[in-house]
Design a protein around this nucleic acid. Structure first.
Lengths: 136, 136
DNA sequence: TGACTTGATGACCTTGAGGTCATCAGGAGA
DNA sequence: TCTCCTGATGACCTCAAGGTCATCAAGTCA
């Protein structure tokens, strides 16, 4: 499970990838259903990381930075400091280890591997294609 | 991922399943590394659900209710109101649906299925055997 | 230049999980 | 009965995630 904030970021970036001109944050919010003020915060963060370009004033908005559509969900999660990136055990917050282990350890390792692989496989471009198909 | 509290419950129940006489909550806490005051709360909750029996006063303690070692991790999670039981989407807190969907939906459904199957397969008795093996 | 539009920024709020603590109440035994 | 041991109970604390809001600052354009 990704943090909700990471999910928001991926959705917003995916939407921006379907647009070729700057879009107002409030319009991104409308299109995705993300709370506008909160989205503004997320966009600002992504701007500082160089993922989006922002422009203030009339005819301003946010736009995907060139090449950013190649970013994987995993890379976005890392940028957002998503806890999904950290190694944890199924029965708690600490990671399993040879000395502190749990009966689900083996299963959970495989499960996590699959999840991370998927996050690395999917990109903003995938998200954009998905949104385009859906809007048809 | 189970909530930490559910993990605590499973560990504590597993430990109790290795014992044949009542154990003081503080000793369960010592054996499992769970914060004693918090464990007292969890034990109280499990007692109200009929999973453990408690006894106050000298030579008191908590003890697994007969048959409780057959409980699956899943059933414990349900008793603890663990959010793992709820259907959610990978990109947020709402569930995916035919109209509100996401590009990870198919993957995530399978992933969740595997997780729930595992939680239903493993029982307190498994946990107990695991703890016994480890303490050797 | 001045008005307007829009993102930037930081203070603050809300909620739930996890956790502590003081106090109450029931059971055992001298 | 009195005392001590132990779980029961509820008030409270802490922290992080998610979210709101007021205000500031940078662009655009008449």
């Amino acid at each position: 499970m990704l943090a909700q904030t990471t999910g928001y970021a991926i959705q917003a970036l995916g939407f921006l990838a379907t647009q070729s001109t700057p879009v107002l944050i409030r319009n991104v919010a409308k299109a995705t259903g993300i709370p506008p003020s909160y989205l503004a915060k997320i966009m600002h963060l992504l701007a500082r990381k160089g993922i989006v370009r922002t422009k203030r004033g009339t005819r301003g908005g946010v736009q995907l930075a060139p090449g950013a559509e190649k970013l994987s969900f995993y890379e976005v999660a890392v940028l957002m400091d998503d806890p999904v990136v950290a190694m944890r055990c199924m029965l708690g917050t600490e990671p399993c280890s040879p000395n502190r282990n749990c009966p689900c350890h083996e299963f959970w390792s495989k499960q996590r591997e699959r999840e991370l692989a998927m996050l690395k496989r999917k990109s903003i471009a995938h998200m954009a294609r998905f949104l385009k198909r859906r809007s048809k």
